Amino acid sequence: MADQRPAHQETDSNRHRDSRPALHGQYAAMLLDTLSLNTHEQHQLLQECNIRPALLSSQDAFLSKQQSHQLIQRVIEISGSPWLGLTFGERLNLMTHGALGQAVLSCNTLKQALDLLLKYYRTRMIHARLELLYEGDLAVLSFDFDEEYSEAYRFQIETVFVCLVKTGMFFFGMKLMHQGQVQLSYPEPDYLKHYQNTFFDGVTFNAPRNALCFQRSLLDLPMAMPNPSALKHAEQACNELMARLPQQTSLVEQVKALIFSPDGEQASLEELAAMLHMSSRTLRRKLSASGHSYRTLTDQAKIQQAKELLVTGDSVEVIAEKLNYSDPSNFGRAFKRSTGVSPSVYRDSQLDAPEHA
Rank of each mutant, 00 (worst) to 15 (best):
S329E: 07
N227F: 06
D12R: 11
C238N: 08
T96E: 15
E148H: 11
M95C: 00
L132V: 07
L218G: 02
P328E: 04
E271G: 07
N227R: 03
I51P: 09
M169S: 12
M169D: 10
E77N: 10
G340P: 14
Q304I: 00
S268K: 03
L245V: 10
S279H: 10
A128Y: 01
T167L: 03
L100V: 05
Q305F: 01
G85R: 09
R129G: 11
L310F: 02
N50I: 13
R20M: 14
D352G: 05
M125T: 10
D263Y: 10
Y121I: 06
D299A: 14
S344T: 14
D60E: 10
Q59W: 05
S68M: 11
Q305W: 11
Q196H: 09
H43I: 08
L164H: 03
T312I: 12
S19M: 12
S250E: 00
L45A: 04
I76N: 01
Q67L: 13
R17K: 15
G101N: 08
D115Q: 12
V165T: 13
M223A: 07
S79I: 08
D146P: 00
H277R: 12
Q236R: 12
D348I: 12
Q47P: 00
I303V: 10
R20T: 13
G340C: 12
L297F: 00
T123S: 09
S344F: 00
Q112R: 06
Y191N: 06
L100N: 04
V160C: 05
G291C: 06
D146I: 06
Q67C: 10
S293L: 09
H97F: 14
S250A: 02
S338E: 15
L184S: 04
D263G: 04
L117Q: 02
R216C: 02
G25P: 08
S268R: 05
A99F: 08
D220P: 00
S342C: 06
